[in-house]
Design a protein around this nucleic acid. Structure first.
Lengths: 181, 181
DNA sequence: TCGCCCATGTAATAAGTTACATGATTCG
DNA sequence: CGAATCATGTAACTTATTACATGGGCGA
């Protein structure tokens, strides 16, 4: 059910179309939730049924018409109530770790290559996050309270990527120190 | 499809029943994958159909009979082939971050309490991991190559929990420094 | 005697992924 | 002229969650 709340959370910022939401997921909320456009459109339908959001059809010239969704009072109440409810820590699911777990079954270069590739991906994500940090949050003290919370979620993403990279380095060092097969 | 590989990876260690696997998920592999017993039993059926594992019925007295599953040669080949295939970084999904994202909508104690609760959960998980570390990997240099890979996955879990706790502290400090509502 | 451990499963629902489908505009 | 952007959706399928269901043994 958290996808619906992620959508409601984005609609707090401003009314958006499904398309806008899909982009917003990739850009801002992406460091802690992701969704494809198919999921988003399906979910928007449900949210509207429940009265948490309402749609306004916008006719456009030169590009497809769109539906702008905005949060209703009911939706806002629902969201803030949900925020106060206790929630569980969500488990990690990391395919790479299954591969490392059975690393002893394959020649070491196989694992080394996988780790290097992942480290590279994490580095790219980190770069992107740090560009966002520089662009939107260059002076954290000057932020409004609302924006400060946004910054904290980005901080989480940055920390996470840094930690992934550090772990990759730990793995690479360990396998270099291993005796040859 | 990664659940099936997690199961195959565990069966490399030794033949296990569905029940054993469920416990093994909680104990060892839990820091990077989780599965309920319902998922496991369903998946075992599929794996057997494909010939990657085979079952041996074990009649027991005083307790229910069980099925011991062991990896087949085909299963092992499948697993090692899969290990060498490239894989994507898996996204984080963290409900708590959605709540922090809209933290500006609720009184600060609400967020503070959520963060404190999460920090506590992460601390408990970290304690558990560190007990495992002390018990099974007290001298990392003396490990066999196979066990070393197991240790690296546990290291990932430990690092992750430490980082979560550090981020929680960052959030708590930030909200303490905020002006009153 | 109450609840936990062992041991296996079914059924229903929710959530997520992948493929398919359309169609104009704008930029290189 | 081809590719990307804007904009919406359906259908089929795979995964994951939750609830239900059974039943003996064993320790406090």
């Amino acid at each position: 059910m958290a996808l619906s709340h992620a959508i409601l959370a984005l609609l707090v910022l401003r009314p958006m179309s499904g398309y806008d939401l899909a982009k917003a997921f990739e850009a801002s909320v992406g460091c802690f939730w992701k969704a494809t456009h198919q999921q988003i459109y399906r979910e928007l339908g449900k949210l509207e049924e429940q009265g948490w959001i309402e749609a306004e059809a916008i006719a456009q010239t030169g590009r497809p018409d769109k539906k702008l969704y905005r949060l209703t009072g009911l939706g806002l109440t629902h969201l803030t109530t949900w925020v106060a409810e206790p929630c569980e820590v969500m488990p990690i699911k990391e395919e790479l770790l299954i591969k490392v777990f059975v690393g002893g079954l394959v020649p070491r270069p196989v694992i080394r290559q996988q780790i290097e590739q992942h480290r590279h991906q994490h580095q790219q994500t980190l770069d992107r996050y740090q560009r966002l940090e520089a662009a939107d949050f260059s002076d954290p003290r000057a932020l409004t309270p609302g924006a400060k919370f946004g910054y904290l979620t980005l901080r989480r993403g940055i920390r996470y990527e840094i930690d992934c990279i550090a772990w990759c380095n730990e793995v690479l060092q360990t396998i270099e120190e291993m005796p040859e097969d």
